[in-house]
Design a protein around this nucleic acid. Sequence first.
RNA 1: GGCGCCAUAGCCAAGUGGUAAGGCAAGGGUCUGCAAAACCCUCAUUCCCCGGUUCGAAUCCGGGUGGCGCCUCCA
Length: 492
Amino acid sequence: MAQPSITLFNTLTMQKEPLVPTEPGAVRVYVCGPTVYSYIHVGNARTFTSFDVVVRYLRYQGYRVTYVRNYTDVDDKIIKAAHETGEDPVALAARFVEIFREDARALHMQEPDVSPKVSEHIPEIIRIIEKLVERGVAYESQGDVYFSVSRYPEYAKLSKRNLDDLRAGERVQPGEQKHEPLDFALWKAAKPGEPAWDSPWGKGRPGWHIECSAMSARYLGESFDIHGGALDLIFPHHENEIAQSEAASGKRFAKYWMHCGFLDIEGAKMSKSLGNVVRLRDALAKVDAEALRLFFLSTHYRHPLDFSDKAIADAEQRMEYFYETLRKVDEKVAGKDFGKGPLHGEPGRFLKEFEAAMDDDFNCAGALGGLSGLFGLMNELVDKPPVKDKALVGRTLQALREDVRKVSGVLGLFEDDPGQWLLRRRERAVRERGIDVAEVERLIADRNEARKAKNFAEADRLRAELKSKGVEIMDTAGGTTWKVAPPAAETA
RNA sequence: GGCGCCAUAGCCAAGUGGUAAGGCAAGGGUCUGCAAAACCCUCAUUCCCCGGUUCGAAUCCGGGUGGCGCCUCCA
């Protein structure tokens, strides 16, 4: 197999590098999953969608991928949330794991190969902490165990921080027994009412970062290929993972570090204090899942992205164009046999362009740009073929449609049946706008009567009446169809 | 203060040394009884500003200006 030439930007080196997996033909990927204390928001969704596509593309290029994305189900935030609701922390976490699964499925994300939970890997975590203590890079202090940053000379190589500066800004939390302010907890002594496990240091629970070191080692080995997360995890989370893992194993931890940019909301940083956090489920109640994916993928994954009503509406409109095109293509060529023979033009070039863009640090935005040509050609071949040979046109459309399916499998777009998608979208719009379908159909029937009688004044009046209700009608060869006009078309 | 990112048309956005993808919006056209959809055409001599390197820079270097992120939990 010719090895594909994927390059990716590595946060560790701050450069694009060719992907050279440790084991030829196989890529091992670890992505920091959600801390399950609440519903995920659209920012989380963007990150996970980005890596969903990374993994899909690696597989598309023939790599055997092992994709691990954890659930952090033991954590301060969970304990706090459980305290507020009076729920048991373990039960609350389990509940949000299920909610996350539903959300991920709703956004058409593929399941990782392994989705380990912290609570089920305490022995592995204890073992790695023991190893760090044995090696003298971690120490116990009144039931807590801390990692000694000064014992790991390469600390801060990922975030490129200066240790003295970090020390200047660091504060020891009350109750912590660190030797040095930068040291961080591997194990926390149990406090009353917290989930706790037995350990060589007494009852307690893991610190925040160690779970990723333990679980990635368990499922991917001590050295693996790609480790991902959002930008804010670079420091301290990923930095600490590197320190723990490399100090414990003596081997290089992850080879490539990929970090996803932030999602803003209407130009502002999403934050609880601003009160502008948008839950994924709330977004999905308003916008089609694939339209949301399209929106995420239309900007490079490392760049900031602004979530806004306009951007979402644009994405949804674009999805409608894509699906409308696919519907027409399927109507014309699905399941038909046009025999063997040449194709019109050079249809294969679109897939090549797509791959070239994706090879370049998973440039989905660039890849999407190339799709315009593909869809434009399909529309042209359906509506006004430049050549008379129907078999030639049919074959070409089928080839193009096949390429769309390939792209589909990578981006997680156009996975629905076009007719179904369009119908669902219309039904949602009908609900949102309170449109009376029976009345719409009656008016259309009346209009067609008028048209048959050549009473075009009346026909136009009925068209205008429908339009005023937010309904646009289309006279096609197969009869009159209708759709709900986008809200933007109305005068506000 | 430290580390880092970004700045491309009215808007969104790709492009990181070879002479500006794509989308939306806008204008014109084909089609249509009229429309819608679709397709075609037009729409940045120019990529925040000033220097420099180069035969050649939106792309590299230096200096500005303006946004933003991380440095505490954060996807």
